Simulated scan of single mutants.
Amino acid sequence: MLQKKEKNFKHNTPFLSPLLDEDLSVFDEALINIFFGPSSYTGEDLAEISSHGNPIIIEKIISLSCLYGCRVAEPGEFTKRAYLNNKMDMSQAEAVSSLIASKSLAGTKLSYKNLGGELADQILSIKNNIISTIGEFEFNLDISEEDLQPNLIKNSIKKIHALEKRLGLSLEGFKKTNLLTVGASVVIAGPTNAGKSTLFNHLLDKERAITSSVPGTTRDVLQDTINLSGVPVVLKDTAGIRKTKNTVEKIGVDKAFKQISSADVVIFLGKKPKKSILDERFIYVLNKIDLKKKFSGDYDIKISALKGKNIKELTKMVLSLLSARGKDSNIILTSKRQVENIGGARDFLKKSVAGLERGKSLELVVEDLNSSLSFLDNITKKTTKDDILSSIFSSFCVGK
């Protein structure tokens, strides 16, 4: 496929080359870059071919490559090979996926931090603190549990509790990170003929939903994506909520309730219920104020979706509710798998603190701390016995 011979290739030195098909006729010209392992993304030999973007040309390059012994990569295979060849740890591999899928610029920046090792460094810091605590306990167990160092238990409780709080904050931080990487679900709901589809179209700034004065026009869930001040939002228009004998409309109402139950924010075009059943995710909206009718009831905001009145104020309220979700954390979690493992590690740290406070045997507390490490190992590199031993002996004098 290339005119240049293999012996002339140099590492990471791009060159321009004609691309030849089976009968040696040129079908395009491409920029070629060769990377020799281990100094490549995967740690193996790699070739990058940058051709013109015509799908026919790309398909031809792929078919010729397969003809000469290559095969089409499986999903995520390049990053998988990089992980298996120790070019990155699991947190960095997940950062690649998050970086590609992120729905906002702020989300890509967070994912890029983890690709650079931010999450791995933070988890390693916590693991080192746990390891040092285990080392102190192991050292004291080798002497006598009855002759513990002064304040060992008190200081250890304080130390482990601080680590548990850091992990807890990271779980809160995931709620905010998830909004920036995956996006928020904002549902427009309410009774029939309340102007939900008109509001949906206005927020999208296009005619996406059919609007009509006939109640029950919207039967299914319509959705589209918008960006509110850097926050990606999946906006959903739902069927009007009312009792109906119409089978199709009833399905639409059931779908509306399902969307409401899982939404991050619900823009409800209707008045507030009693305080005892208020939902903090809801913004209660009075629409159609352009009709200049008298409306009863309590609302968070009054708008006209048709005329665009107070829509900016409504979007600010949506953003305010979204920004209140979670807290800022320097431990950036971008996947549910990471959340599950952080949660598991945190639970065992809590258990170890409770055990120390009750006077539980240090051997059993060490087991809890090791279990916490096992969960953290699922995010970064494994903790070895040598890590524990190094912690035990690191405080010794030279030569001891």
Rank of each mutant, 00 (worst) to 15 (best):
G399C: 07
F393N: 12
K400H: 05
F375K: 12
V72K: 02
L235P: 15
F137T: 03
I130G: 06
Y68T: 00
K336Y: 00
E172Y: 04
S40L: 05
I301E: 08
R358N: 10
K87E: 10
L169M: 09
L24Y: 11
D21W: 07
A101H: 06
N227F: 11
F9G: 02
K292N: 13
F9C: 03
S17I: 10
T380V: 15
G297L: 04
T198Y: 06
E164S: 13
L67C: 04
T315W: 07
G359D: 01
D347V: 08
A354N: 11
P14I: 06
S50F: 03
K272Y: 06
D368W: 03
L24H: 13
E6H: 02
F174K: 01
I157N: 14
F139S: 11
I277T: 14
K272V: 10
R208K: 12
A189M: 06
D290V: 03
S40M: 11
I342Q: 02
S390M: 08
K113A: 01
V366Y: 04
D377Q: 13
A101M: 13
D254L: 13
L376F: 11
S132Q: 15
N378M: 15
F348M: 13
I131H: 07
D142W: 00
E146H: 10
E367Q: 09
V231Q: 08
G190N: 01
G117E: 12
G168R: 10
T198I: 15
G297M: 01
Y112T: 02
S104V: 08
P191G: 05
S372H: 06
E249A: 06
K159V: 09
G195M: 11
G252E: 03
S144W: 12
L167M: 13
I153T: 09
L19Y: 03
D28C: 12
T383D: 12
K4C: 04
L389E: 09
A345N: 13
D328Q: 14
D147K: 13
I160G: 03
V231F: 14
S320W: 00
A120G: 10
L2K: 06
S323I: 10
Y299A: 03
K196D: 00
I61F: 12
L179F: 01
V366H: 11
N8R: 09
F257E: 05
